[in-house]
Design a protein around this nucleic acid. Structure first.
Lengths: 129, 129
DNA sequence: CTTTACTCTACCCTGAGGGGAAAGTATATA
DNA sequence: TATATACTTTCCCCTCAGGGTAGAGTAAAG
């Protein structure tokens, strides 16, 4: 099938699918005379796989790794779990940073009257040495 | 003072300070004969202000807005609080997304034995239609 | 045969700078 | 004074994961 159908079936944009072909992530055959990319069902399955992994916040490089594990029938579940646990700990540290940030900002906001006077503890904090 | 000292005092890199000059965020005078940027204490204060705001996850555009409020002695605290509350709600929605993601991933990981066998619920989930 | 739909490559754009080259300027030392 | 070292300048390419558009070619439908 052509790229439009492959994109539709995998719920990705054509741009994204073409990008994955260019970086060698999912590289379909190209029709010699027309130059059109021709996707197989298996390649569409890989595109779907990548789409899901991307939603789980895996980077393209991590997707590449997961994809090669997915294709390797002899891989161990240990390898996959390791990548997943690393991703979870990345998410945890981002969560902590964001929580700290939220606390500081909401502390500032709660101290600010938010009225028509110029006095503003938020700007005061940002101006502090 | 020159850019090196300004960068040091504001805890920013020279690249960053130069970038802020280029985009017109903090634009110092430039010595005509040498071409060197010459920073005043007030400009360094602005750089510090921006550095803090950036740590609070404000974008460059938001910093620009905050900076103009900071410079406007007639601004109301209402305006500043509004921006801050918007930022907090942005952070909240990012927090929710990340929490959902974490839950799904940790559910997958907990169902994966992580042993030397190829069977892996994580890849199964990613391959699902 | 023409219109419409689809696809191709090639180029520039995003945010917030980082890295490095080549050249000019300022300061410290011999 | 000459040189060595430190500092600064502009310019260009790079990041990440594609998005947008242009111009041209191809396929399918009427």
């Amino acid at each position: 099938m052509n790229i439009g159908k492959a994109a539709k079936l995998s719920n990705l944009t054509i741009k994204t699918v073409r990008y994955y072909a260019n970086i060698g992530l999912v590289k379909p055959e190209q029709n010699i005379s027309s130059g059109y990319r021709e996707y197989t069902d298996e390649e569409v399955a890989k595109l779907k796989f990548i789409g899901k992994a991307r939603k789980f916040d895996f980077s393209i490089d991590e997707c590449k790794e997961l994809l090669s594990l997915y294709e390797d029938k002899n891989r161990t579940s240990k390898e996959v779990k390791k990548i997943t646990l690393e991703k979870i700990s990345q998410i945890d540290s981002k969560l902590n940073d964001l929580k700290d940030l939220r606390n500081e900002l909401s502390f500032l906001a709660s101290n600010c009257h938010g009225d028509d006077k110029p006095n503003c503890p938020i700007l005061d904090e940002l101006s502090k040495n």
